[in-house]
Design a binder for these strands. Sequence first.
DNA 1: CTCGACTCCTGTTAGC
DNA 2: TGCTAACAGGAGTCGA
Length: 260
Amino acid sequence: MPELLEIEYYRRAAGAGLDREIAKVVADDHHFLKNGTTPEAVKAALGGARFTTARRVGKVLYLDTDHGEVLSLRFGMTGRLIVDDSAVIDRLEYSPRRDEPKWDRFLVRFADGGSMRVQDPRRLGGVELDPDESVLGPDAWEIDAPMLTNVIGTSVTAIKTRIMDQSRLAGIGNLLADDGLWRSGIAPTRAANSLSAAEVADLALALHETLRQLFERGGSHMGDTQEERHKDGVCPRDGASLQRTKVGGRTSYWCPIHQV
DNA sequence: CTCGACTCCTGTTAGC
DNA sequence: TGCTAACAGGAGTCGA
């Protein structure tokens, strides 16, 4: 599913949609417009405008316009950004691979005939005009031990839940969290404030490396444990049967031997 | 403020 | 073969 890495691919793809006059906006799915954003407002804001910058914080893509408004795109679990009908990602975990027009939830057509659209079969993503950008924590791409220490604070909640809290650390989703925890040998269920300073440093480094390696491999679904995310999955490191546990409402796969 | 539980959303798939 | 129920997880809301 789209996590920080996928949104970064989308951000780069959005570069092809910059500085092109917007001729038409199709935003008829009210459910996909968030926080009071209306189709009329989006059309008024974008009509005749151009996107000037594509920025990313965590899993959110921000498109600035030359009229001053900012458009935010969230991709939920199955959302893709498609510019000029070429999808930068054709294989999205847990999402169908087809390009069905009925899954287009938001579309911008440029005056030159091209387009940029968000395709999201499950409609868990969303579009918002002039969003509050302060609701997100620091971007996880730059994570290091001091940042992770701040993220953890004194919280007693499960460490996995904490690093997935977008208001404290932006960009980590279920797959990146599981892979980082697996690499650092820390159980997802551990109370966040029970990690030693050394463990916090290990986890920060593991997440840092996970982000960079999986970006090179092609996405958050390219983790070392991905192929074992099923019943009967085994740990690639020591062969133990992986535990399947709900943590913070998310399915977590982890090794009961080396993750403690 | 913190944190867990619940809910929404819909295509795919396991299982009968 | 065809159907149903479970499943996937990002994110918002609510209540203790």
